[in-house]
Computed example of a mutant assay.
Amino acid sequence: MPEENQEARDPGSKHPEPEFPKQEQQHPGWTGPMDPPPDHGEESYRGSGLLRDLKAVLTGGDSGIGRAVALAFAREGADVLFTHLPEEEKEAEGTRQLIEDAGRKAVAVPCDIREEEQCRRLVERAVSEFGHIDILVNNAAYQMSQPEGIGAITTEQFDRVMRTNLYGMFWVSKMSLPHMPRGGCIINSTSVQAYKPSPHLLDYAMTKGAIVTFTQGLAQMVASDGIRVNAVAPGPVWTPLIPATMPDTAEFGKKSLFGRPAQPAEMAPAYVFLASPQAGYITAEIVNATGGTPLP
């Protein structure tokens, strides 16, 4: 194998390694200022028709893992409706362009999934645009690091984490299922935090553990309807949420076995697989993409 191909395949060196430049952003964070820039698969992801003509709904698709999944789904042949916060309109434009460049329909919907009525309008919009929902990806999430411990977690923060990560997922799933035909699927984004919680992300980690339980329980509930429910558990991933919610990003991801964080593009294939017919016998499973973190 040529040396340059070996380097491109080496998981430890194929993407930037810490130490990263010091950088902080206001929540929700933006892709443009990040150094190094995140890789969503713009130059690397090649589709093969795995999701041809399927209709996907994706929460939190403006940046990070959500943008990478939207890009991959579109290049696999799916039309994609995705949500973003109202203040993330410029970020969402980047995702919309990637979907349309792949020749698929893109619908960007400003939506705060903390509100039940906004979730209802989201699903109604998806049905209006597509007629039905083949794939639902519950990816939107909120975190805020509190290194000073539980005493620093305000009720306002706790409520925002719970409503974004759990209430929104519950509402969108519940409202989407009546519009999902047999063969449809739900994919939830959990995290390595579900198994190995970091003390400074206590409330966020709680929700990620709950998402594992929700995934496994809902899968049993809807299997007879021909619908699969799975989740992806990423480890450290270089997204705008990191400089926007963590005080020190210089060594982010350095403790993984590969000595670096994942790029969003490295998470997208797991979502594609779970959404594809090739995963037709897989449900109630968690695909761990943690960079080698040992899990129970």
Rank of each mutant, 00 (worst) to 15 (best):
G94L: 09
G94W: 09
G94S: 04
R96K: 14
L98A: 05
L98C: 09
G103Q: 03
R104P: 12
R104S: 02
K105T: 15
A108I: 05
P110D: 04
P110C: 07
C111L: 11
I113P: 10
R114A: 10
R114E: 10
R114Y: 06
E115C: 12
E115T: 10
E116M: 14
E116K: 13
E117L: 12
R120D: 11
L122S: 13
L122F: 00
L122I: 10
V123F: 07
E124D: 15
R125M: 06
S128R: 14
G131Y: 04
G131W: 05
H132R: 07
D134P: 05
I135P: 02
L136Q: 03
V137K: 03
N138Q: 01
N138T: 00
N139F: 13
Q143V: 08
M144T: 01
Q146E: 13
Q146H: 15
Q146N: 08
E148Y: 10
A152M: 02
A152V: 01
I153S: 04
I153Q: 04
T155Q: 02
Q157V: 01
Q157Y: 00
Q157M: 03
F158I: 00
D159V: 00
V161S: 00
V161I: 14
M162E: 13
L166D: 03
L166P: 11
L166S: 12
Y167W: 14
Y167F: 13
F170I: 14
S173M: 15
M175I: 11
L177I: 02
P178M: 09
H179V: 13
M180S: 04
R182P: 09
G183F: 12
G184V: 09
G184L: 05
C185D: 01
C185Q: 06
I187Q: 08
T190P: 13
Q193A: 15
A194T: 03
A194L: 12
Y195C: 07
Y195W: 10
S198M: 14
P199L: 08
H200S: 15
H200T: 09
H200Y: 15
L201N: 03
L201T: 11
L202W: 08
D203M: 13
M206H: 15
T207S: 09
T207L: 05
K208N: 08
K208P: 00
I211N: 00
G217K: 14
G217S: 15
G217T: 15
L218M: 09
A219Q: 04
M221S: 14
S224D: 12
S224W: 05
D225T: 11
G226C: 06
I227H: 08
I227C: 00
R228Y: 11
V232S: 01
P234A: 07
P234I: 00
W238P: 12
